[in-house]
Design a protein around this nucleic acid. Structure first.
Lengths: 208, 208, 208, 208
DNA sequence: TATGAATGAGCCTTCATTCAT
DNA sequence: CATGAATGAAGGCTCATTCAT
């Protein structure tokens, strides 16, 4: 029935909330069950191992980001305009609205470097990551076709790396927003916008 | 005595090794004591709470990186050359040799977003972070003075942000080297070198 | 309906199979329901407590053995011949075919020494046990009447005890067949047959 | 120190008491710790897995029986007299004094038919069992040498089996003493004594 | 009536931290 | 000062049993 799906959702979202606030290891299954207002046993019925729940939460977190990028590609802007939107989307990760998600992803990436996770569990996560990056690759191609993007072959390598770095760094900054600024300073949104503008101009006439 | 300092060192280095391999939460105080060939009680005498040890390990990890940068400033190269060395130093973080340290720092940055740490404990870490960034700031200043670096005022903002992103991303890549490439692709050293070259040229004549 | 009885049977036989394989405590009601292809709730409708099911399974296991002995009494052999058949029947307990049942009984006998079971629940089981032993007692009587069995009064006591020991030991051996022989050696069927022959000769002319 | 051994002993004996009263599965590690007046963690320090404790308890229970048999062999009686003592010793298992031990062994024998136990864990138990049976075998040999025991080759097989059955059954009877007699009647000590006498006479002149 | 879903109580085990030698 | 031993609190997970459809 619908009830079942609803409950599932409520458990995932309770987990998500607590994981984002306290981290995976400091959140107990009991905490999550309480937050979701279910018995522990019920939680375990849906997610037999704590890890299953972690994976599920993270998977959904990533998947939730996909539509944002799909929307961008599906607009009828030029390639360069779409790319600008993409960069803006990344910058938005820092906004309060998206922080929880990004924090979760950062936590997960660290988690799997320490705890060995079954390959099969990661597949769906990989897939979601893949979707986003292929969307971005597609946009570059479009831009080159519609002439809005100009990239020499060697500059394309540079671009790819810069783009990757941009995404990686911005995500990491999200984490830093939870820290006292004195420890790790986070560039302001304005500063990131300036970098965005710079990157766009790179795409337009990098050969110059 | 000297013995005391030695013991302390061996405990920290045991902790460091295990923390880097298994993460903070999956490493027990007993594990560390065993690795350091000390009794647990002794470990606790030196570091009354596990957290103290974590802080200490991280502090040392950061501090160990400072000399690398100090060396760079103290050479008698031009500003731009020094900056090139700095970027190279960052890229080296990905090398096996430095990975453990970086992994530790990444883990710590996540750790403190979840576990509230007394401000006083963080001060020393802040200090070490600060040292590095002021070294870098100094280099830019030098470069501008010796004429090897040309930056308009607005480009200086861009540069600072780009530089921060570069550092942040490269550190994060280090973590990714522990993950299957299918999940999160890491740019190769060559690609990073190309970006470095690009950044250097930005410094030389950004106004162009 | 008949359906109801059928379902009941399938649950009991599922339980029996699993109890014999994993023991009472390591078999869950869910396991049994799954094996019987019924919902757990249904299982509980028929057997409100797990213990009820245990009792039922055991009761049936014992009852299934009764006909074997009834058949023996109802033949028109002499008393001594019937007794020989009885001993053979016991020896057969070790055969794969009967092991499951015997294992169940052994497990149950231990179970009730630890878990207090309502007297009323045991009544039926008592009854089945009683049936078998009265059949055997009857056979001895018959044998004495038809002259095939010769027992002085005191030897009859000895016989009864020996017979009880024979039955008890053989049942226990069944269990041992599941264990590595190095731990507890089980007499071979041939050896048991020799003992049987010996016991028969005791019945024939014990006074000698 | 001695303290350590004492504590160990107190834990084992608490476990033994509770295991014998409630069975392995119905006794929790917490119960045992409480009974032994130690913290659970201490219990786990000595016996990292519950199973280790089970094995230890059982091992000691068996080992405690060995001296009884050793004493018998070391006396300077004839073989047949020693054998008589052995049989008496077995009969004594039914006495209150030995019941707990025997119950434990019975429980364990069932336990290992259901729960797979590492071969290595069983070795010591095997050893203790082996000691007793080799003592008995030795006695028969002695008896044949000193002429007090007369056994044709074929009768020796019969004897071995009968003896094994006697031991097996008597041990099982011990369990039955915990049950209402109506379920499973236990031969009285007197009856067992009569069987003993009979067995001894068998040993003396079985060829007759 | 048949059933899947829900659940609290409880179990084994771990670990940071304290004690006692 | 160094240490092994001791421990309570807590965590992941299970299961007999009850609800609600």
């Amino acid at each position: 029935m619908v009830r079942k799906a609803e409950r599932r959702r409520s458990m995932i979202s309770a987990a998500r909330k607590l994981f984002a606030e306290y981290g995976f290891e400091n959140t107990t299954m009991q905490n999550i069950a309480d937050e979701a207002k279910v018995g522990v046993a019920t939680l375990f019925r849906y997610f037999p191992r704590k890890e299953d729940l972690i994976i599920e939460v993270v998977k959904e977190a990533i998947e939730q980001q996909v539509p944002r990028f799909e929307e961008i590609t599906q607009s009828n802007k030029t390639g360069i305009e779409k790319m600008e939107d993409v960069l803006t989307a990344y910058i938005d990760f820092i906004s309060e609205e998206y922080r929880e998600t990004t924090k979760l992803l950062e936590a997960f990436e660290l988690y799997i470097t320490f705890v060995p996770v079954e390959k099969s569990m990661l597949e769906e996560i990989e897939k979601a990551y893949g979707e986003i990056s292929s969307i971005v690759a597609e946009i570059v191609k479009e831009g080159k076709e519609d002439g809005s993007i100009q990239l020499s072959i060697s500059d394309e390598f540079v671009w790819n790396t810069i783009f990757s770095m941009f995404g990686t760094a911005v995500k990491k900054y999200t984490l830093y927003t939870f820290l006292p600024d004195t420890i790790l300073p986070v560039p302001s949104k304005e500063e990131l916008m300036m970098v965005k503008k710079f990157m766009i101009s790179f795409l337009k006439n990098s050969t110059q």
